[in-house]
Design a protein around this nucleic acid. Structure first.
Length: 1022
RNA sequence: GGGCGGUUAGCUCAGCUGGUAGAGCGCUUCGUUUACACCGAAGAUGUCGGGGGUUCGAAUCCCUCACCGCCCACCA
């Protein structure tokens, strides 16, 4: 054997070996009739690459999976990747741009999809390969993909995940759980798609709040009165305007009303009146009503709120309640709209609506573009600048003295007087408050999200959330750690409709076909296939109806232009003449990625087919996932599995925390503090990385990763390696018949280590049962290093020089103990252990399929051996400590004295003399009446050993040493004595605790007596 | 504004249902002992964030304050 394990070359070889033998196949190594254990991998993005979070997540899964597999359970670790709509489309488009390929729009939808599939196939191997490097023991023959079997999927991408998704959509649609509607949604202007609430990151940003005057219509005035709580008038003035604050002046153009709280007496006189939006061409100023609504907070700002239903979620709610029209101001790229009629005409129409002269349908309102001609086509931020400028120029900004505390520094600076101007205190400046505002950003695009009024598809989440909540409440599904349950509940109890449509191309296209309905709305048919949709259309429009598939809504509209013109003077719906062929187009939107990954547990097991795997492995056993996707994924899987198959997706959810850098910062590319797991694997080996992650995985706590730590655990692997190397050199592995059952041993040392091993096996199992990965890892670490290597290997050395019988027994024991180390460590460090397994005996199979032990500590612990070995260790440690402090040369074998050797101790000494002498560097043991001058005393239990070091020791040094030890002992003894003297303690503490305390006190007193005797002797000399 | 975590040795963290403060790294000294220098031996280091309370006994339970972090939230 080499001195170290060469992870670099061995790991791939070993992994290939596992794969070739099908070691990870579902059910591999299962005992007949074994219970099932199944885990679905949180599917990484197909174009992604492995980051620390993945490494952590998959290490934990692999530990559990390997552990169960070795225990003979019917184990499946289901792997796969996610098509990751936005991310993948983004990655592909970026690469296309870099390659100078035509853009997505230039190539068209079909060609683009083909291109993304190429990208998918190309990059899939990256993350899969990385997972393999980590050692993940997934059943790769079952690798799934969330878009497998999609209609445009190329050869080799078959599978039926797409069928499952479509089937669920259709089913939920038919049950009324999915609906379409024009709603205000979070719009990502970069990707030009709607996103869900969860994909919005609210970030505190420095912003400004402007205050503007909305003049009252027709020169109307009112007395504005501010009172305090007691009704005392604080301020009173005659006003011809209402003051409005806004952080988004550009949206004023779309205002539909001004709202005040119904109880707000300041504005009571003008409720119902009209005011003017102070922007846009003077001659076409729009008037909007002043309405009441519960929403405005009278204590905030002026208490009056402008209502822009199409660009603000609160305003939208107010608008809905008050029947206020929502005027959309921006296009899909969040530029100010440039479509439709000129401003004059649009404003006129809007005025008519405001006056109540006409009512328009939603889409008619949407068609109105209220952006003044000079602002059309501008970016929203540019439009804001201009709007502010125009209003301020017109004198309609609220002005305040330059010293107003609400003003930011900028405004104050502006107020510096020009030559001969007004002194600063009296100068009036526009009221622009600098303040922190929560600004929404797209989590992928990092662009400011715009609330946008669009047609979208929604899941009625509230209708399906019930069982998902109930299951966790009643314990059907366990979420660990406890605290994450609360997070889960909080979100689900306040669930909002889930916007599932995305205006992307890469994804599951919504299985809905639209035809012209009646009026200007489209009529929709939802079906799994186009044929089925057509059947439905025939059923509706008549068997003789003729349909023609067209590209999109625009094409259909064009076809129908003539038709609708003909219809304008027709009244009754049924009398309408149909066009020759009715245009039909498929809904262009695709589904939110999480809609499909929400089906991951059943989808990967073959649903909607009634497969054997579903029967065996569903519901899955445990889901291991990061806290950041509890809402995105865990909650959705819960809702959807219950909605679709009426069953929980998993029994337990183990939520783990984030991997941070060594300073506790979240790893991010922009901070440059990312540790790439692949680099670390390259440098330290996969086992070290895995063990580090496991050892640091205290439940629910973030873990901070440093290279030092990984190096430490790499060394741990080497340590085990070298213990085996030692064994090999001592013939342990020679012609060996490895056995899983512990050998019968006579030597104390061997009996002791067998018991210790059994104890560790129990602790590890208990820890893993409780998902306490760190406890399991640390237990193994301290056992292998601190017990097996530090003591057992050392103890064995003299045994290998004894008679053949002892040598044989020791070889058998050491072989067994090392085997157990390999077995128990295998889930954590699969590579080194597998390698050692192969090197240490001729075996029937690989370690990956070895039997996990079930021996019990109670059966294997030999209490006498344990007591004896503890005594031996204490003696050796005490001697070594004394020697070092007395500066006894390391190489010197010193004689040892003992004065009062008891019966038991004599036996212990006799049985272990060889190894004590060797490890404590003792020449011989002499029994004496009393210690001579200059003897260093080593108390071990009731016995005092001594090192006669006359002339060698520094008396002062030894007195200091003993007094230090004495001080510590005395402090402890006094503490114990104090407790025992307290009658309340003796009364109320449990009996064992009292007994233990007494025993401890006796032990301390014995040691103290020995030390006192030694001190007395030394002082004689001194 | 709500909620949840954290504060223990120089650093990073363990300490489950209250019963003599622990680990790893780092540090100091020593070491060519026939597995291992990715090693061995021996050490040093803590008013367990502050303040109250419950208890015979609190790092551990309760209250409160401070600071740090995270999540959620519609204050224009």
């Amino acid at each position: 054997m080499d001195k170290t394990f060469d992870a670099k070359t061995a790991e791939t070889r070993i992994y290939d070996g596992w794969e070739e033998t099908g070691a990870f196949r579902a059910g591999a190594n299962a005992k007949p009739g074994a219970e099932a254990f199944s885990v679905v991998i949180p599917p990484p993005n197909v174009t992604g690459s492995l980051h620390m979070g993945h490494a952590f997540n998959n290490t934990l899964q692999d530990i559990l999976v390997r552990w169960h597999r070795m225990r003979g359970h019917d184990t499946l670790w289901q792997p796969g990747t996610d098509h990751a709509g936005i991310a993948t489309q983004m990655v592909t488009e970026r690469e296309m741009a870099a390659n100078g390929e035509p853009s997505r729009r230039e190539m068209g939808r079909d060609a683009f999809l083909e291109r993304v599939w190429e990208q998918k196939i190309k990059s899939r191997g990256t993350i899969i390969g990385q997972l393999k490097r980590l050692g993940a023991s997934c059943d790769w023959s079952r690798e799934a993909f969330t878009m497998s079997g999609a209609p445009n999927a190329p050869e080799g991408e078959d599978g039926n995940f797409h069928d499952a998704v479509i089937r669920v959509f259709v089913d939920m649609y038919e049950k009324g759980l999915i609906y379409r509607g024009k709603r205000l949604v979070n719009w990502d202007p970069h990707f030009e798609t709607a996103i869900s609430d969860l994909e919005v990151e609210n970030v505190e940003t420095q912003g400004q709040m402007w205050h503007f005057k909305y003049p009252l219509a027709d020169g109307r005035t009112y007395t504005y009165v501010e009172k305090d709580e007691d009704g005392t008038v604080l301020f009173e003035e005659e006003r011809d305007y209402i003051s409005i604050a806004t952080t988004r002046p550009e949206t004023m153009l779309g205002d539909g009303a001004v709202a005040v709280h119904p109880s707000d007496s300041r504005y009571a006189p003008i409720v119902g009146a009209f005011c003017e939006i102070p922007v846009g061409p003077k001659e076409h100023r729009r008037l909007i009503p002043i309405i009441t609504d519960e929403y405005p907070d009278p204590d905030f700002g002026s208490g009056a709120v402008k209502i822009t239903g199409a660009h603000d979620f609160n305003d939208y709610a107010v608008a809905k309640r008050g029947g206020i029209p929502c005027y959309r101001l921006m296009d899909m790229g969040a530029q100010m709209r440039a479509d439709g009629a000129a401003y004059a005409e649009a404003a006129e129409t809007a005025m008519a609506v405001a006056r109540g002269e006409t009512t328009l349908s939603e889409s008619e309102v949407d068609a109105i573009n209220l952006v003044p001609d000079d602002l059309r086509g501008h970016d929203r931020f540019e439009a804001r600048r201009r709007v502010v400028e125009q209003i301020t120029e017109e004198g309609l900004a609220v002005m305040v003295p330059a010293h107003d505390p609400r003003l930011g520094k900028k405004a104050a600076r502006k107020a510096q007087p020009e030559e001969g101007g007004t002194p600063p205190e009296e100068a009036l400046v526009p009221l622009i408050e600098e303040k922190l505002i929560m600004q929404p950003f797209g989590d992928r695009s990092k662009v400011v999200i715009e609330p946008m009024l669009t047609d979208q598809w929604f899941v009625d989440a509230e209708a399906v959330v019930g069982p998902a909540l109930e299951a966790v409440r009643d314990g059907t599904v366990e979420i660990l750690p406890e605290r994450d349950k609360k997070v889960y509940f909080h979100w689900l109890e306040n669930i909002e409709p889930w916007c599932i449509s995305r205006q992307l191309w890469w994804g599951h296209q919504i299985p809905v076909w639209h035809t012209p309905g009646f009026g200007d709305e489209w009529r929709s048919f939802c079906a799994a296939t186009e044929e089925e949709a057509l059947q439905q259309m025939h059923a509706t429009f008549g068997d003789d109806a003729e349909f023609i598939m067209v590209e999109d809504e625009a094409a259909a509209t064009e076809m129908l232009a003539g038709y609708f013109q003909n219809m304008t003077d027709t009244t009754g719906v049924d009398q309408r003449r149909r066009p020759q062929a009715i245009p039909v187009f498929r809904d262009p939107d695709v589904l939110d990625t999480w809609f499909s990954s929400g089906l991951w547990p059943i989808g990967t097991l073959g649903w909607p087919e009634d497969t054997e795997e579903l029967k065996r492995y569903f519901p899955t056993s445990v889901l291991i996932t990061g806290f950041d996707i509890i809402f995105f994924w865990v909650a959705r899987m819960m809702m959807m599995q219950y909605a679709v198959v009426g069953e929980r997706p998993f029994d337990t959810v183990y939520v783990h925390a984030l991997v941070r850098d060594e300073k506790g910062k979240k790893m991010s590319k922009s901070l440059g503090n990312v540790l790439d797991p692949l680099d670390l694997i390259e440098e330290y080996g996969a086992d070290a990385v895995r063990f580090t992650l496991a050892a640091m995985a205290a439940m629910g706590r973030d873990l901070k990763l440093s290279k030092d730590r990984i190096a430490g655990y790499r060394n741990f692997g080497t340590k085990l390696w070298n213990a085996c190397r030692f064994a090999e050199m001592n013939g342990v592995f020679e012609g060996r018949e490895a056995s899983a059952t512990p050998p019968q041993a006579r030597e104390t040392v061997n009996r002791w280590i067998i018991g210790e091993t059994a104890r560790v096996r129990e602790t590890v199992d208990e820890a893993l049962e409780g998902y306490r990965f760190n406890d399991a890892a640390n237990t193994l670490y301290s056992f292998v290093w601190g017990v097996v290597c530090d003591w057992y290997v050392e103890f064995s050395k003299p045994l290998f020089d004894k008679d053949p019988e002892v040598v044989a027994e020791t070889r058998a024991t050491m072989g067994w103990v090392l085997d157990q180390c390999m077995v128990l460590l295998h889930p954590f460090m699969p590579f080194v252990t597998e390698e050692l397994w192969g090197l240490s005996a001729k075996r029937d199979g690989m370690l990956v399929h070895a039997d996990w032990p079930d021996y019990r500590a109670a059966d294997l612990i030999d209490a006498e051996a344990e007591t004896e070995m503890r005594w031996v260790i204490a003696l050796i440690e005490g001697t070594r400590s004394a020697r070092t402090q007395m500066r006894v040369p390391v190489g010197l074998y010193a004689p040892m004295l003992v004065a009062d050797l008891g019966e038991k101790e004599r036996g212990a000494w006799d049985r272990n003399a060889d190894l004590i002498k060797r490890l404590a560097r003792i020449e011989r043991l002499d029994e004496v009446e009393s210690f001579p001058r200059g003897t260093v005393t080593i108390p071990v239990g009731a016995t005092s050993f001594g090192l006669p070091l006359e002339g060698l020791i520094d008396v002062g040094e030894e007195i200091a040493r003993l007094e230090k030890a004495r001080g510590k002992l005395e402090k402890e003894a006094n503490g114990l004595r104090g407790r025992l003297k307290n009658p309340k303690f003796v009364e109320s503490a449990p009996e064992e605790v009292v007994e233990e305390t007494q025993a401890n006190l006796v032990a301390r007193d014995e040691d103290l007596a020995a030390i006192d005797a030694a001190l007395a002797r030394l002082k004689e000399i001194g």
